[in-house]
C-alpha cells in the first residue's frame, strides 16, 4: 500500500461509505464537506501514478486473481480467440515481456516465467501523440486515459504503442460467446464498450476518483502485500518510491524513450 496507516484508515472509511452506497453517501455531504473530505484522500491527489510489480512476491495465483479482478470490474469479454482478445492486464513470459533481454545462460527461474503486464502509462506516450481526435490523452495525474465516446477506431494508437497494451473491439463485446461469459456484464456500474473502439488499462481511474486503489492491486494485497505497489511517483515519501529506492528495477523497452511508469523488480 502506498499510503500510511492513518491515511489508509480514512480512505477505507470513505470508500466503504462510497464504494457501496456511493452517491447516497455523497448526497448526505454538503458541497464544502465533500471537497474537504476528498482532499484528505491521498488517492485522489496523485501527481504521477505508477506501479511496481514485485516479482519476488508475485506468483501465478496472485497474477490470476489480479487478472480476474480487472476483467470482472471492467466487463472485459472473453472471445476465446487470441486474435481478438481484449487485454487490460495479462501475463506473458519473461523472454516475450522483455524481448532481447534473454540470453542462453539464463536460469529456469526466469525463462518461461510469467510476468504481469499492463499499460505502462508512459510519461511521453506515443499513443496519445498519434491519436487524431484526442480520444486518448495523458491526464495531469499521469494516467493515460481513454474516451470511448470519442474514439473513431482508426487504431493508430495500436500501431504507436510499443507494448501491445491496446485492444480493439473487433466485435461487439456483448456478442461474445455466452458459454465463455456466463455473467457478462459482470459489473453493471461500469460500461461495456461498443464495437469499433480501442480500450486499455486506465489504472482504475473510476476507483481512484472514489479513493479506492486499482482492482488488481486490491486483489494482490488480499493474498500478499507488496506484490503490486501502486502510488504517486511524484511523492518521495510514497511506498512506491521507497520500494524503488530499496530494490533494483527494470522497465519494458526503456530505450524507446516513452518513459514507462510500470516497474518490475526481478
Amino acid at each position: 500500500m502506498d499510503i500510511d496507516r492513518r491515511k489508509f484508515l480514512k480512505i477505507a472509511g470513505l470508500s466503504a461509505v462510497m464504494g457501496i452506497g456511493g452517491k447516497a453517501a455523497f448526497e448526505l455531504l454538503a458541497p464544502k464537506e465533500l471537497e474537504a473530505s476528498l482532499r484528505e484522500v491521498p488517492l485522489t491527489q496523485g501527481k504521477k501514478w505508477g506501479m511496481v510489480v514485485n516479482m519476488a512476491k508475485m506468483d501465478d495465483e496472485i497474477m490470476k486473481r489480479c487478472m480476474e479482478a480487472c476483467n470482472r470490474v471492467h466487463n472485459i469479454p472473453n472471445f476465446g480467440d487470441p486474435r481478438v482478445e481484449i487485454k487490460w492486464i495479462w501475463e506473458e513470459t519473461y523472454e516475450h515481456s522483455f524481448p532481447g533481454q534473454e540470453h542462453e545462460y539464463i536460469g529456469e527461474k526466469y525463462l518461461g516465467r510469467n510476468f504481469l503486464l499492463m499499460c505502462n502509462h508512459c510519461t511521453d506516450p506515443p499513443c496519445c501523440r498519434v491519436c487524431p481526435t484526442g480520444a486518448t490523452w495523458k491526464r495531469e495525474d499521469g494516467i493515460v486515459m481513454m474516451d470511448w465516446h470519442r474514439c473513431i477506431g482508426c487504431r493508430f494508437c495500436m500501431a504507436g504503442c510499443p507494448y501491445g497494451s491496446r485492444s480493439f473491439n473487433w466485435g461487439d463485446p456483448r456478442k461474445a460467446p455466452k458459454e465463455l461469459n456466463p455473467d457478462f456484464p459482470t459489473n453493471r456500474d461500469y460500461p461495456t464498450r461498443s464495437k469499433g473502439v480501442v480500450e486499455k488499462c486506465t489504472f482504475c481511474d473510476e476507483r481512484i476518483a472514489r479513493g479506492q486503489i486499482p482492482a488488481c492491486v486490491e486483489a494482490a494485497n488480499e493474498i500478499r502485500e507488496g506484490a503490486l505497489v501502486f502510488g504517486d511517483l511524484d511523492d518521495p515519501d510514497s511506498d512506491i518510491r521507497k520500494v524503488l529506492r530499496a530494490h533494483y528495477s527494470i522497465r519494458r523497452k526503456p530505450e524507446l524513450g516513452t518513459g514507462p511508469n510500470v516497474y518490475y523488480i526481478i
Binding site: P82, R83, V84, E85, K87, G153, R155, M158, A159, G164, S167, F168, N169, W170, G171, D172, K195, G196
Partner: peptide
C-alpha cells in the same frame, strides 16, 4: 458485425 470479419487482429491491426 464489426471489423472482426476481416483478417486483422490485435497483433496485425492494420
Amino acid at each position: 458485425e464489426g471489423l472482426r470479419i476481416t483478417g486483422m487482429s490485435r497483433d496485425v491491426s492494420w
